[in-house]
């Protein structure tokens, strides 16, 4: 499925819709280049899930994962940018955290740990504030 996102508001609305469909055990993978808007989408998802429009969502690039308590249960926001493969994920507690909702930036690093039933959102930078989202997965829900 392709969705045009003419501005950041549109990206945030898409994130809120996904938050409305998500439940524990879900993996939402956010693919796209540097600056494509993965963190913007993740931030909006977490704010919608937590019913807190001002929720602070710092980049997890440095800590690799940040966890949040939301109305949907715990949500774990991963940024795998600095990893080269799935080995290090084990140490981050992936197995346990994946029982909750996980949002994963740079999901290509998941390798063999990539959940088969994940939703994948790929963001394309189409210039300025405009983006295009390609969405794959969740056939029963979307």
């Amino acid at each position: 499925m392709e969705i045009a996102l003419p501005d950041q508001d549109a990206t945030e609305r898409l994130a809120a819709r996904l938050a409305g469909l998500a439940r524990p055990g879900d993996a939402i993978l956010l693919a796209g280049d540097l600056g494509a808007g993965k963190s913007t989408l993740a931030r909006a998802f977490l704010r919608a899930a937590a019913h807190d429009r001002a929720l602070e969502v710092p980049s997890p690039s440095f800590t690799l994962v940040q966890s949040y308590d939301t109305s949907l249960g715990p949500v774990h926001h991963f940024d795998l940018w600095r990893l080269d493969g799935p080995g290090a994920l084990v140490e981050l507690g992936w197995d346990e955290l994946a029982e909750d909702i996980v949002l994963v930036e740079w999901p290509d690093r998941l390798g063999s740990l990539r959940p088969a039933d994940a939703l994948e959102v790929t963001l394309h930078d189409t210039g300025g504030d405009t983006r295009r989202a390609t969405i794959a997965g969740w056939p029963a829900r979307l």
Binding site: F62, L64, R82, L83, A88, E91
Partner: peptide, 10 residues
Amino acid sequence: FGGVVPEIAA
């Protein structure tokens, strides 16, 4: 690896 990899770090 272009950064800190936790497993290696530990």
